[in-house]
Simulated assay, not measured.
Amino acid sequence: MPDDETRWLSEEEQRAWESIATLLFRLPGALETQLQRDSGLTLFEYMVLSYLSMMPDHTARMSELARLTNSSLSRLSNVVNRCERRGWITRRPDPEDARYTIASLSGEGYEQVVDAAPGHVEAVRHHVIDPLTPAQLRTITAAVDRMRPLLPNGELPRGRGC
């Protein structure tokens, strides 16, 4: 039963929320369709490979990759298993702390993400960047930066990749 204390959304807030929800549900599918068609990658596989490509020595702890991809270690492990079978990623115990596992992007994995990146960047441009003005992009960036501390997992790696 609704609580009398509930702060219901105004009409403008409801429109904003519906717009964000539409983006959250439709954009990943559009990006995944392009990646599957052009590179045989899921969006999640691409993000794992891309994050590793931006890391020093193309290496990260599995726990860090799980944080960056906002996934469980179990889900990440399944994807990394597929990538290992394809020769794109290798895993080994962390030499600094054997409780952790390190994932490293292989040369073949790096080539895979480099080959997939131009098509992915074009899809991002088509669906997100090109329809917006520079001022709208700055506004979105500022809004997301304001919300980011309230979301799990915080920052993403900064790099040239997309």
Rank of each mutant, 00 (worst) to 15 (best):
P28E: 03
V144G: 05
H127T: 02
F44N: 09
R61P: 03
L23C: 14
D145Y: 13
P95E: 07
Q36I: 05
L9P: 03
T6F: 13
A143R: 10
W88E: 01
C83V: 12
C162I: 09
R7G: 07
E45C: 02
R138C: 06
E5H: 05
D3I: 09
H120C: 06
S53I: 00
L68F: 12
L24N: 06
M54K: 03
T69V: 08
V121A: 12
R67A: 07
L35A: 11
R160T: 14
R61C: 03
L9G: 07
G40L: 06
T133C: 09
R99L: 15
H58Q: 14
A66Q: 02
L76F: 04
L31A: 02
A16M: 15
V128H: 02
A21Q: 12
L31R: 01
E12V: 14
A21S: 10
E155A: 12
R7I: 07
I129R: 05
E64F: 08
R85V: 08
M1A: 10
H120V: 15
T141C: 05
S39N: 13
A123I: 06
S39K: 07
P95I: 11
P56N: 08
S106A: 09
E45L: 02
L150A: 12
S72G: 12
N153C: 11
L150Q: 11
E5F: 11
I140V: 14
D57A: 07
T90A: 05
R15D: 07
P28G: 04
A135V: 14
Y100F: 10
T90S: 05
A117N: 10
D145W: 10
E84I: 15
P95F: 08
E111A: 12
E122L: 09
G161H: 03
P152G: 04
M147Y: 09
E155F: 03
T139F: 04
T139N: 05
H58M: 04
A116Y: 00
V80R: 00
L76W: 04
G159M: 05
R92S: 06
G87D: 02
S53W: 00
L65S: 02
L65M: 11
E111D: 15
P149A: 07
L65W: 01
P157C: 06
Q36R: 11
D115S: 12
L9E: 07
M55L: 10
R61F: 01
V79S: 04
R37P: 05
R125N: 15
L105K: 01
R85P: 01
H120S: 00
E108A: 13
G40R: 13
P131V: 11
G107N: 15
W88L: 14
L65A: 05
R85L: 11
L9M: 12
L68I: 03
V121P: 01
G154L: 12
S74K: 09
H58P: 00
